[in-house]
Design a protein around this nucleic acid. Structure first.
Lengths: 225, 225
DNA sequence: GCTATACTTTAAAGTAATCTTAAAGTAGCA
DNA sequence: TGCTACTTTAAGATTACTTTAAAGTATAGC
């Protein structure tokens, strides 16, 4: 799960990023409303956390503009004021939830889970292609000859490929979506995980394979016989 | 037993929390309808006490929305008015009971007991999975090679896992449901109790085991042979 | 009200899974 | 043939979980 966090107070932001990463989210942090909008419009996120008070453009404004553009990523608003008017305006503008500062981290996590769950409720819990099934709940990859538990990175990569079956996914897209813009991981990480995935696919007896497209990226497709 | 109390008058709320905690309930207190809804939807409670007159969303509205979402936690409504119309609407909306202010604490406690009993009446007294049985009455865990008495925390954790056999339960969910939102216990408490439980499962000769899903949570499942 | 006991929590040290990097090997293509 | 892009392996660093021990709290029986 990839989240965008827009919060201008550095300390607050850093603390939140730490907690969110710990809870298995990939997080991109931005520090003003303009960046929030620019990042948000990429549709690379499963959820966004927007502070209302921010330089350049306030959170409600960002939200309105994104909704105008047809971006319906779930949004959780953070507000320092507990004023009802702000909240109502936020919810009217298409926010999915809001939280008043100060708040407990546990509550934030619960709200994020609820928010993204509502969204993903209709997307199936198990992905199936050929003779393999990937559980979004347990990260288990099942095939005719066994089950393998995938790590978080392996899971995210395979999930992307299964959702976009037969479609080419560029190495950069993997990096952006899974490691985030600000990651300094080498490109070669993607190659390594592709290798791990192929090994696990073979070990569960999959009839699908990951094909490389030289200079471009990877595709998941059923094996030819 | 975990209760949610939604009551906007601080003094009243504090008094109720004190009495309820004294009667061995874990209590989360919220002070408006929106929070009542947000907390209630987590399904972390064995019962909810909702004041009808509350800011942002009244108790009946909260109840209706929760029932719409399929949450059937028992609800006791508190009303200052003794108007019949309110009561009828409340009961129609899926409340299990109501109480008119002012009321005696003793009566409130009795109603809560009755309400939660009705609910748990139909859930079996013994949970069985594989070759182990957990008694909800005595907190005894029985297996082929012995019996172990579980502590309250151990019991609650194992109960959750047995009810949700083969389903992953996140560490956060354990924390929320057993320790509550406002607890400041470290996450590591969960790990410690998982360890105690595993030890007791082995000692009674269980053919089920608790599997960890790194970064996510735990699952109870029958052992592979 | 004291003491023994059981239960809960914290802390810390040990273990294992996962992630990242580096480096050596292989294949496609000019 | 040689360049580049990918593949694989292995080692190290990091993180997450497991276990143990000990300190803190609550409870029951005297």
């Amino acid at each position: 799960m990839r989240l965008l966090l827009a919060e201008d107070e550095k300390e607050m932001s850093n603390a939140l990023v730490a907690v969110l990463k710990h809870s298995n989210y990939s997080v991109d942090a931005v520090y003003d409303g303009l960046d929030a909008y620019n990042y948000g419009i990429s549709e690379n996120y499963d959820g966004m956390i927007l502070d209302i008070m921010m330089p350049k453009m306030d959170g409600i404004e960002v939200l309105k503009k994104l909704r105008e553009k047809g971006i319906n990523t779930p949004v959780l608003l953070l507000t320092a004021k507990s004023q009802v008017s702000d909240r109502i305006e936020g919810l009217d503008s298409g926010a999915d939830d809001y939280l008043t500062k100060p708040f407990a981290m546990g509550e934030l996590l619960a709200r994020i889970r609820a928010m993204t769950r509502r969204k993903t409720e209709f997307s199936p819990n198990d992905l199936t292609i050929g003779n393999i099934t990937l559980s979004r709940e347990t990260f288990d990859l099942k095939g005719p000859s066994g089950t393998q538990r995938l790590g978080s990175k392996e899971f995210q990569m395979l999930e992307m490929m299964m959702v976009n079956k037969n479609t080419l996914i560029s190495t950069e897209r993997f990096m952006e979506r899974i490691w985030g813009y600000d990651s300094d991981a080498e490109i070669n990480v993607v190659w390594v995980f592709i290798s791990y995935l192929r090994k696990k696919l073979v070990s569960v007896g999959a009839d699908v394979e990951i094909k490389a497209a030289r200079g471009v990226g990877y595709t998941l497709a059923e094996k030819q016989k």
